[in-house]
């Protein structure tokens, strides 16, 4: 393909910041629906674990999508760069809900149980590391932080790829047997990483 049509800028009645906020709010809907259903008692016999697992999966999905933004632009010509930050923040938000449901709701903040869990379950170690990275990235995603960090911001935010790898491990070994879903997510993650490895000069040839 020689010419990828450059996406035409359609005029939007909303400012870029408004569009970012709207996207963020829109994708909080799955969480709102889960919580509403959980409170209404229509989320099955174990609503807490349903929420816990749903939120974890959403966190991973948004992390993958936010990391797919750059390859989408480079190789497909779809530019959703404007939405990279809200997508990343969604990943963090869902990860925070996921952690809240585990630590507070499921484990009742019981430090003894939590310590036993964290010291004996390797998949939780990877979960914690993933969350710490996402928290660091979320807290340095403000305009002021970006300016303050200057050149250091970009290498810091490359940690998102590490978070993605940890999330793959966390999700894959969380079950009693191998599951199909983490396998699919891992394949997507590997694709994202592989595209990241393609040298810049090859951009036009693809």
């Amino acid at each position: 393909m020689s010419s990828i049509p450059s996406p035409r800028r359609r005029r939007s009645r909303f400012s870029p910041v408004t569009r970012q906020v709207l996207l963020y709010l829109f994708f909080l809907l799955p969480a709102a629906m889960d919580i509403a259903q959980g409170m209404a008692g229509t989320l099955g016999p174990n609503p807490t674990s349903a929420c816990l697992h749903d939120f974890g999966r959403y966190a991973f999905r948004f992390l993958l999508v936010s990391l797919a933004v750059t390859p989408l632009k480079r190789f497909v010509g779809v530019d959703i760069m404007l939405y990279r930050r809200p997508l990343g923040l969604l990943a963090f938000t869902y990860a925070a809900l996921h952690v809240f449901f585990y630590v507070v709701v499921a484990r009742h903040l019981d430090t003894h149980i939590l310590w036993q869990d964290f010291s004996s379950r390797p998949f939780l170690t990877f979960g914690v590391l993933t969350f710490l990275i996402l928290a660091a990235l979320a807290s340095t995603s403000t305009r002021r932080a970006i300016r303050a960090l200057g050149r250091k911001w970009s290498p810091l935010h490359k940690l998102a790829y590490l978070a993605m790898i940890f999330a793959c491990i966390h999700y894959s070994i969380a079950f009693k047997t191998w599951h199909v879903e983490p396998f699919i997510y891992t394949v997507i993650a590997i694709c994202v990483l592989a595209l990241r490895m393609v040298p810049r000069s090859a951009r036009r040839k693809v």
Binding site: M39, T48, C51
Partner: peptide, 13 residues
């Protein structure tokens, strides 16, 4: 310990 299915609420197992 164990979670009792059918008891508790969304925000408190």
């Amino acid at each position: 310990s164990e979670q009792i299915i059918g008891e508790g609420s969304l925000f408190h197992t």
